[in-house]
Nucleic acid binder design. Sequence first.
DNA 1: CATTGTGAATAAGTTCACAGCC
DNA 2: GGCTGTGAACTTATTCACAATG
Lengths: 218, 218
Amino acid sequence: MRAADKVLPEATLGRLTLYLRVLDSLAAEGTETVSSEVLAEASGVNSAILRKDLSLLGTFGRRGVGYEVGVLAGFISGTLGLDRDWRVAIVGAGNLGRALAGYGGFRGNGFRLVALLDQSPELIGRRFADLDVRDAGELETLLPADAVNMAVLAVPGAAAQALCERVVAAGVRNILNFAPVVLQVPPGVQVRKVDMARELQILAYHAGHAGQGGPPGP
Amino acid sequence: MRAADKVLPEATLGRLTLYLRVLDSLAAEGTETVSSEVLAEASGVNSAILRKDLSLLGTFGRRGVGYEVGVLAGFISGTLGLDRDWRVAIVGAGNLGRALAGYGGFRGNGFRLVALLDQSPELIGRRFADLDVRDAGELETLLPADAVNMAVLAVPGAAAQALCERVVAAGVRNILNFAPVVLQVPPGVQVRKVDMARELQILAYHAGHAGQGGPPGP
DNA sequence: CATTGTGAATAAGTTCACAGCC
DNA sequence: GGCTGTGAACTTATTCACAATG
C-alpha cells in the first residue's frame, strides 16, 4: 500500500528529488544508513527541514542511528510515483530535443522515452537514441498509439502553444516545457517549465547585488 | 542611476523574468501600454502579486491606464542587471552543451556566449555556434583571458564537481549547472540548477495525485 | 471610472530547540 | 550518546479588498 496519501507541499516535493538522488549515489557506493545531518548536507539543505520533509511521508528513521538508505530511497521513489510506467514523448527533434533524447536522466527512474517527433521532413525517419523521428503532423494518432502520458516540448517559442494544444488534445496531461513561453492550458493539465534564460537572469541579478559580477582583479 | 537598491525577494525575481518576456513580445507586436490584469494573465500569475512585485521596483504605473510596455521592460531589465556585459562560457560540448550553444536565449539580453570548452580531443577545434571548441584542460587560462563571468556546466554528473572547482578557481562566481548533482561551492559563489529529471519527477507526483497519469480511456 | 498601489489578513515555508527514543 | 520527530516561533509569500488617483 501507498504511504499516507495527503498532498505534499510543493517545496517538500522539490527537495525529495534531491534526497533521492543523493540516496541513489549513497546506495551505489554501498552505504547502508545515513543521518539527517549527512543527507541534508549532501543535498544542500538544513537538516531540520529534511527531517520534517521525511516525517510527512511516515516514520522510518531510527533515533540514534539514522535512515536506511535503500528503504528510504524506495519509499521516496514510490511516493513520487516513479514505480509507475511513465511513457515520455519528446516533441521537437532539433538540437535540444536530440540532446534530451540522449540524456540518461530517463533511465532507471520509471521514465521511458517512447517517441521522438518533429515536423521537419529532413528529420523524420532519422534515428536518434534508438528511436526513429516520427511526423509531428500525426501526433494525434502517434501519442495515443504509444500510450504516451508525458510530453516534453522542445520546440521554438513560436510553435509551442499550438503544439501544446495538440498534445493536450491527444490526451496527454503532463507537459514539461523547454520553450521560452508561458503555456496556457486547460484545468487538469500540468505544465512545468525549464528555462535557461530565466536562470541566467536570476544569476545576473544576484551577481550584481551580492558578489562581483566580473573576474577578480590582479 | 539604478533603482532602489533594496534586495528583491527570490519569488519576485523569478516572476520578473516572466514579465520581461511577455513585455518583450508585447513590444514586438507594437503594444504600448498594458494593465496589470493582462500582463498577469499572460504571465500566469495573479494580478495583485504582479502589482506588488512592480511596486518594489518603484512607481511607474498610471492609474486608470496601466504600464508603459517599453519603460517597464527597460526598467526590469536594468534591475536584473541585464544592461551589464555578461560573458558566458559553456563547459562541456557534448549533445547538451552544443544544443545550449545554439540556443537563442543568450542574444539580446545582455548575455554573450564567448567560449565553448570540452576535454575530448575529438571535439577540440571543431566549430559550433560561431565558436571553436577549446581545451577544457586550459580552462584556468582561457576563462580569464575571455573575461568570462558566468559559466554553464553541461557535463556528466561525475565530472561536474571537479570542473566546478576549477571554474571557481578561474575566478568565475556565477554558475548554471545542468549536471544532475548538488554542487558544493565556497561562499560568494552562486549556483543555479536546471534539472530535467527533477521536473519529470515532480510532474509524476502531481499526475498521480491530481489528474490521471495515463491516457484517457475510450 | 478603470486601474494602480498598498495595508491588513491569510497561508506557506523555514528554523529553532528539545523531548523522546534507540 | 546520538539522532529522530515535532511543537512553537519566526520568516517569507500570497491574496484580498479598497482608498487613492490620473
